[in-house]
Amino acid sequence: MKMQHFFFKVLFLVGLFLMESCSAQSQLIEDELQTVTTENLKYYLYYPQDYESGDQKEFGLLLFLHGGGESGGDLEEIKKNGPPKLLVEGKQFPFLVLAPQNPYRRKWWNTEAIIKLLDSVVETNNVDKNRIYLTGLSRGGSAAWELATQYPKKFAAMAVVCGMAPLPYAHWINKKMPIWVFHGDKDKVISVDESDKMVAKLKEMNYDVRYTRYEDVGHNSWSRAYTTEELYEWFVKQKQK
């Protein structure tokens, strides 16, 4: 009988301990930790032919974000596609072109680091802050959408090529910023549905958006998009109001 009483007493104490532990764990403890993130971004910066003309003319700037295939440590990879490829081939642009490299093969772009780089380049060069343009392809196109939602007052115009779209946050994008979207309908990497739905949502909200939807084109829609001369003429016409 005494053993049975001892057994119940032990159970009671264990139960009391568990109740006290749960009570302690359920308390919210307020705390704070300051974090600092650093990123090493390699980049190319192109200057127009008349940049060193001697006057204090301000130029526009195009920020180009490459796709996943050009990520890593070899900066030469950036020259394979988009505006950097055209520059290597001899094309001239009337604005500066900033082309950073994502240092990680299998990570998304660090958009905060991109903005810090962009701000630094703008502050140290003759750049018109009202004529900063944004474009990106594939993973870089996804980052362009992200930048447009996170920094809506930064860009005068944006062109996205086959990127994943943040549909639920479409309304975060600056309604005054013109947008041009490109995508191939046979894209098996990033479905054309991403652009279809995003463009439809933007149009529903009366955004200024253009859509070039290529027929029988796969993921490599950037080959056609970036050789569209009208795209650069369109960029030059845009300025933040």
Rank of each mutant, 00 (worst) to 15 (best):
Y214H: 10
Y169E: 13
E215P: 00
S191L: 12
K175Q: 15
S191N: 11
K186W: 05
V161Q: 00
T228Y: 13
H183R: 07
I190Q: 03
S221W: 02
D185R: 10
S191R: 12
I173N: 00
S221V: 01
K188V: 01
N220Y: 06
M164L: 12
V189Y: 05
M177P: 10
N174A: 08
S223L: 13
V209G: 02
R213C: 10
A165D: 03
E215C: 00
T227A: 04
Y169R: 15
M177I: 01
Y207S: 09
P168N: 06
T212I: 14
W180Y: 04
Y211H: 05
P178Q: 00
I173D: 01
E194Q: 15
D196F: 14
R224I: 06
L167V: 12
V199H: 12
Y169C: 02
A200K: 14
N174I: 12
D208L: 14
R224K: 15
S195P: 13
W180L: 02
E215W: 03
T212M: 11
Y211E: 02
D187A: 03
Y226C: 07
E194G: 03
S191F: 04
C162A: 13
K203C: 03
V160P: 00
R213D: 10
A165G: 08
L202F: 06
K175Y: 09
G218K: 03
W222K: 01
M177D: 03
V161M: 00
Y226D: 00
V192W: 06
N174V: 07
N206A: 06
R210P: 02
R224Q: 14
F182H: 00
V209D: 03
